[in-house]
Design a protein around this nucleic acid. Structure first.
Lengths: 207, 207
DNA sequence: TAGATTGTTAATCGATTAACAATC
DNA sequence: TAGATTGTTAATCGATTAACAATC
């Protein structure tokens, strides 16, 4: 089956990919049950999700692990690497710059930009901090695919506008702000304090 | 109306709270339309969400802003502060330790624990790094409410088990791993590389 | 053949939203 | 009264999952 893939399915594909990576090295096939338990979802969910992708599954046998990994990587667009710029050289921005999971997954942080001129020129793990003025030229020169916003909330919209103006069409936003953006620009939000607030809700309900 | 509140509604309450905080200081009331635009959702969604909480709304007028803020804070359990321990004193763990949004929202990071004995005793913004052996005693002594896992994936399950064993019932997991846990323990996952992979999908579809 | 497991259907469940009566 | 806006219903939409035929 092909056609448009539900957003919830797309969001689970990285989990399946990780599940496959955790398989015993020599294991040639893998069942929906195995993938389900490593992703923490129902096995019918796994089969349904994969069914959108013409999966290399064989009834009675399972999915060909290597072929499924390749399929997931292709589907997620991970057959090439992506260029990332991070805005905001505070503690979070610097931690994200050196986060090993990004490079492992195919994302290269090529610059960290900050409005504080004093930080310009310093380097974090060989990534150079640049003045925010250079955002547009960096995006153009390095063909930046993804902008990460790790600034305070007050600066987030302006930085987003500049990323978008420079041609960036994907943004990962860590600032506690909801960004306005034109059609065709994809934004994902990670709300760190919000996550703790949701946990607080459950704690306060727990008794 | 009262009764059980949908999970999706709970996850939006922090957004509404933030929307209220951004209001003009003197503004006494606030419409579902205003809240909707600051949260990036439909206004019917806002009214529906709030309707689970007996909101201070008046037809033709709007919601009493101060009363709604208090209601949301009460509902989320934010009338008290919460004690947080972070496991993993790598770059991410240290950045989270000093993340200002946590303290602002009522979450106090009381310790950072790490398996590297060499890090023990150092401090990050007055938060002391402790050996991981001390996890249980810290949880007990400080009545820790929430454990944050910022370790590599390989250590995440063990750390989670130790948090749970020590009595922690809420976990925020940044490690790329799906944690097994007993009933009654709430886990939220933030998948940093996964977020970029989802953005990569949209980029690869965009043309 | 017996056992395993996929692929798919259909039922169910839950979440979103348009619409509008209620009412300030 | 006219205008504004909530609260709620009902329609719709989308996501999950049990169940099972297909088939290795």
């Amino acid at each position: 089956m092909r056609g448009s893939i539900p957003a919830a399915t797309i969001a689970r594909l990285p989990l399946y990919l990780r599940g496959l990576a955790e398989l015993e090295p020599g294991q040639p096939t893998c069942s929906s049950d195995q993938l389900a338990s490593s992703a923490g979802v129902n096995s019918a969910q796994v089969r349904k999700d994969l069914s959108y992708l013409d999966p290399p599954g064989v009834r009675g046998v399972g999915y060909n692990a290597a072929a499924l990994r390749d399929l997931l990587r292709r589907e997620l667009g991970l057959t090439r690497r992506y260029c990332v710029v991070i805005a905001g050289a505070g503690n979070l921005g610097r931690a994200l710059t050196v986060y090993p999971g990004f490079e492992e997954s195919g994302f290269d942080v090529v610059a960290l930009v900050d409005s504080d001129q004093g930080k310009a020129g310093t380097t974090i793990n060989s990534v150079v901090v640049k003045a925010i003025d250079e955002l547009e030229s960096i995006v153009a020169k390095e063909s930046v695919d993804i902008g990460v916003i790790a600034t305070p909330a007050g600066a987030a919209q302006e930085v987003a506008d500049r990323f978008v103006g420079a041609g960036v069409r994907s943004i990962l936003n860590f600032a506690p702000a909801v960004l306005k953006r034109p059609e065709g620009v994809e934004v994902r939000r990670v709300d760190l304090a919000g996550e703790l607030q949701i946990l607080a809700y459950h704690l306060s309900q727990a008794r």
